Amino acid sequence: MLNKFKEWYRKNIHDQKEQRISEALDFKNRLVEIGGMKYFLAKGSMTDLPDLVKVDQAAYGSKVKWGTKRFKTGLKNRSDRFYLILRHNDELVGFICIVISRKKSCCHIENLAILPGFQKRGLGYFLVTTIIERAREMDLRRVIFTCRKSNKRSQSLVRDLGFVPGEEQDHYYDDGEAAVNYQLHLDKRNYLAANNFGR
């Protein structure tokens, strides 16, 4: 009896969820308008590697989040993670990296970076809300956002979107700084205020 139930579950519930995740990860590139400017929104690929590293370094300076090796690993793995990138006039100006945990039914935003000259134009808000909607399409329960304890701008952004602070992780980054994990529970519909697009 138990084996029959497991087989039914695998064929129906599990396979349906995998189909939803697969469809959400099959992202179609397109033009988008944010704050009156046009950007090309695309799924990142290995050819974007130098630009991803450049944006990360420009956004975080000496507190750069990742090295080239970490980006390569993320770009190679297509089954549980992906990058969304924004280009303006063919220049990569921002990106977001997510990891899907099927076991925990969550989407983890691991990295978000916007070129300094393009910050406060709503690009970070756009990328995070796009991921929230993708996570809903995947029928996940939570979105987790990890950032430096000192990164007040990102913390303010996700708080405005309904994320709540969770546990801190001491010495999370290479320089010893702690990280804060914010969580958004997707069973509670959040209404996003338009005025946040100025962030």
Results as ranks from 00 to 15, higher is better:
Y60M: 07
E133C: 05
T146S: 15
V64Q: 15
I132H: 03
F163D: 06
I109H: 03
S105I: 00
W66M: 06
L157T: 02
A113G: 02
L140W: 01
L92S: 01
A24Y: 04
Y83Q: 00
H185G: 00
K43F: 04
H185K: 12
E110H: 10
L41V: 01
G176K: 06
Q57G: 11
Y125N: 09
C107T: 05
D174N: 12
K4W: 09
E137Q: 15
V158L: 09
N29A: 15
K65Y: 09
A113I: 00
G74N: 07
M37D: 14
Y173N: 01
R78C: 10
A24V: 03
Y9F: 14
R159P: 01
K6P: 04
R10K: 15
K76N: 14
L52C: 05
T146Y: 03
H108Q: 11
F40T: 08
Y83K: 04
K69V: 12
D51W: 01
K63F: 11
S101K: 05
L186Y: 07
A24T: 00
Y191Q: 10
R134L: 15
Q169E: 10
L25A: 06
E7N: 07
T129D: 06
E167F: 08
R159Y: 09
N77A: 11
Q169I: 09
D56L: 00
V158I: 11
D48I: 03
A193R: 12
R199K: 10
R78T: 13
Q155G: 02
